[in-house]
């Protein structure tokens, strides 16, 4: 697993309070991991903080799964 993927999963586990094994790459934050709309904003903030990037709102809206996050961060950091 890439460094980025590992960090993303760690952030998701911490912020959503879910078991690590549930955080698969295809897991949807809202449908599979119990996040609400506020949680997804907070997750994006945490990604920005951790990776020192800015995720514009229109891009953030498209980040719905763990893989979406890893792909966006990999391409932009």
């Amino acid at each position: 697993m890439s460094d980025i993927a590992e960090k993303v999963k760690k952030i998701v586990v911490e912020h959503l309070g879910v078991d690590e094994d549930k955080v698969t790459e295809t897991a949807s934050f809202i449908d599979d991991l119990g996040a609400d709309s506020l949680d997804t904003v907070e997750l994006v903030m945490a990604f920005e903080e951790e990776f020192g990037i800015e995720i514009p709102d229109d891009a953030a809206e498209k980040i719905q799964t763990v893989k979406d996050a890893i792909d966006f961060i990999s391409a932009n950091s």
């Binding site: 949680d39 904003v41 907070e42």
Partner: peptide, 10 residues
């Protein structure tokens, strides 16, 4: 602004 928590108001 982008560091303000979405949970702040609620």
């Amino acid at each position: 602004l982008r560091r303000v928590s979405p949970h702040f108001i609620a």
